[in-house]
Amino acid sequence: MSADNPLYQRHLSSAREATEQQSQDLLEHPSYKLAFADNDFLMQDELRHVRLQLEYLKPQLILEQHQINATVVVFGSARFVSRQQAEQMIAVAQTKLTQQPDAVALQQQLREAQRQLKNSVYYEAAAEFSRLVTQHSKDCPDSSLMIISGGGPGVMEAANKGAYQAGGQSIGLNIVLPHEQKPNPYITSEFCFRFHYFAIRKMHFLQRARALVAFPGGFGTLDELFETLTLLQTGKANTVPVILYDKSFWNRLINFDMLVEEGLVKAEDLELIQFVDTPEQAWQAICDCYQLGQSL
């Protein structure tokens, strides 16, 4: 067939198009993706160990680059709100009740708002404690300590907020949850991390910790508290102050003395715990431990 024949030219054109399409299909096929850019590949069960390593390394390298090696961990309920927010909740509930005084749901809403106002003392205390820690760090950079929280709302937000209000930096270790958590706005941008694995997040909480302060909280707070105490009790972590805020709350929640009486822990194990009732006492306990010379 002559090269000038129209049928031949159409055949060549179709062959070129087919070849080009095949090349394009190869470029777009998942197998051609770079391994580290292929999410479907990385999310396989067989790659879990790689994901764990990556999740550990990202915060690790960033914190090392910024020479952050001493932190104060703040735990507590994600459900507490600031005094201002609680007062606004009460005002809204009262306004609605004046219009529908017999509405049971609105009565419950008012009681919840009043409870939030009572518990807002923990939010405010966490913010003040973090402010004290951060102010010291600004004044005494050679013994600086950076606040680290779980990155979310409640006491976590208050901790980051206190550092922010003092003009300092703080860390937030967010976690992927079924009901998506978003970072509170007071975390320092370059130290706002997000985790899928609780285990790696916990490692970063304690790896640089010089103290842990636990405000009242629920299952998450208790999980972090008792894991820390177990690591200290068994010598898997260096001894650091574990400070429980509001002695009456913690003694009402947990009968620590009963654990000793039943032989479940040793009496000296309770020496791992200190109770405080003010932000100043919490900071003083850390100062006394490390002889920071910042008496309050």
Rank of each mutant, 00 (worst) to 15 (best):
S2W: 04
Y8M: 09
H11G: 12
R16D: 10
Q21E: 06
S23V: 09
A35M: 15
E46S: 15
R51A: 09
L54H: 12
Y56C: 02
L61C: 07
Q65D: 13
I68M: 08
F75R: 04
S77K: 11
A78D: 07
A78Y: 06
V81N: 02
E87I: 05
Q88Y: 01
L97N: 01
Q99H: 14
Q100G: 00
A105N: 12
R111T: 11
A113D: 09
R115D: 10
Y122C: 06
A125Q: 13
A126W: 12
F129E: 00
R131V: 02
V133E: 13
T134P: 09
T134I: 06
S137A: 10
D139Y: 11
G151R: 01
G151E: 04
G152F: 10
P153G: 08
Y164H: 15
G168M: 06
N174D: 05
L177E: 01
P178S: 02
H179W: 12
P183T: 06
N184Y: 02
P185L: 00
I187Q: 05
S189E: 13
F195H: 07
H196Y: 15
M203F: 11
F215W: 01
F215Y: 11
G217Q: 04
G217A: 09
G218V: 08
G220D: 08
G220I: 05
E224C: 05
E224M: 03
T230C: 12
L232E: 05
T234V: 01
K236D: 01
V240M: 15
V242I: 13
I254F: 05
M258A: 09
L264F: 09
I273E: 00
F275E: 02
P279A: 15
I286D: 10
D288M: 08
G293L: 13
